[in-house]
Computed example of a mutant assay.
Amino acid sequence: MSEPGDAGRPNEDFASVGLPASGQGGSLVVLDGVTPPADGGGCLHSVPWFTARLGGALTELTVSLPDVPLSELLSRALTRTAESHAAICDLSHPRTPQATVVLARWSPAAVEYLVLSDSALLVESPDGAVTALLDDRLARLPRSALATDALVDATLRNKEGGFFTAAADPSVAARAVTGALPRGEVRALAALTDGAARWVERFAQGDWADCLTVVRKEGPQSLVDRVRTLERADADRVPPRRGKTHDDATVVYVEL
């Protein structure tokens, strides 16, 4: 499920699950679009346009090319998306449309994964243990380095020593956290954008295992509803809360 943070603004997230006609395996794609600056970031297109293009390409490629590594598929999808608007948009702008990425693809033999930037992929094993697969580069940066958008764009965004998102440069795919697990070691997967992961990362209502339990027992909507309740309470705090009051929130849950 996916819910916008503000009913008056388009949802900038993207989510899909692909199941090949063979019935063998499948894939999931979750993107969290980065809200653009007031000047539009040099692009004529919206972030939802970008995430739909990139997400659509990834959904197709992860199913149709099962033997190609996920990092290579992300590179190809970024190239395809950039080529669709390079002639009319400034893709060199640091805030050209971009997104965080979570990919997972499973076959009878393995579960492959890719995580880029601050969305999360939770993996549950048959014994109930939960592992969070994260790209924590942004979380490890000192708060002083994130003081303003201009400072982040100039020194950290898609730069060495900073953090990386999927924008127009296909080489960023090599920066993603990737790996593979034996299929028998995975019972379920949950992909969350940071708007849903706030339940753990911002509000500390439980750990990742608790988070997956909520999703499995009560459903993704329940997790997002809990986050919304916490966000409304947090908005009344002094000093002012960090970041957006409400963020787009997406949860995809798959039992293998």
Rank of each mutant, 00 (worst) to 15 (best):
A190K: 01
L91Q: 08
R237T: 15
S222G: 02
D169E: 11
G18M: 06
G55E: 08
P4C: 02
V102E: 08
S2D: 11
H246G: 02
N158K: 04
A145M: 11
P10W: 05
T35M: 09
H45P: 00
G8E: 10
E185D: 15
D118P: 13
T59P: 00
S46Q: 11
G162Y: 07
R237V: 14
G128M: 09
T81K: 06
A139E: 15
R183S: 06
S84Y: 05
T100N: 11
A197S: 15
A82R: 15
A99V: 05
T245A: 12
S27F: 09
P97T: 02
L116F: 08
A129T: 13
L73C: 06
D153K: 02
G40Q: 10
D194E: 03
T165I: 03
G179T: 05
T79I: 01
S144F: 01
R9K: 14
P94V: 11
R232Q: 14
A57Y: 06
P37T: 08
K159H: 13
W199A: 08
R242F: 09
Q24N: 00
L58E: 10
A150S: 12
D136A: 14
G41E: 07
P36F: 00
V47E: 03
P94K: 08
E185I: 00
T100C: 13
W199Y: 14
A129R: 14
R105C: 01
D247A: 11
L151K: 07
A150V: 11
Q24W: 02
N11H: 03
L19E: 10
D149N: 10
S222L: 01
G23N: 00
L28T: 03
N158E: 03
A129S: 14
A235T: 08
G40H: 05
S171H: 06
V30E: 09
A191T: 05
P37L: 04
C43E: 10
A104V: 09
L256W: 03
D39A: 03
W106R: 10
P220G: 15
S71E: 15
S75C: 03
K244G: 01
A188C: 06
T96A: 14
A176G: 12
A87E: 13
A190P: 00
A82D: 05
D248Q: 03
L121I: 11
P4L: 01
D127Q: 12
A167K: 09
V123P: 06
L58M: 12
A233M: 13
S46A: 13
T62R: 01
D135K: 07
L134S: 03
P66F: 00
L181F: 08
E72I: 02
R9D: 07
R198C: 02
V152Y: 06
E201S: 14
P10R: 04
G42V: 09
L181M: 12
A77M: 10
W208P: 03
E72G: 11
L230M: 13
A7I: 04
F163C: 04
N158C: 01
G219F: 09
R140E: 14
E72R: 14
D236V: 02
L134F: 09
G56L: 12
L114S: 07
G25R: 04
L44P: 00
R175P: 02
L73M: 12
I88T: 15
E124I: 03
G184N: 07
S64Y: 01
P220D: 13
A139T: 11
D118R: 08
L73I: 12
A38M: 12
T245Y: 00
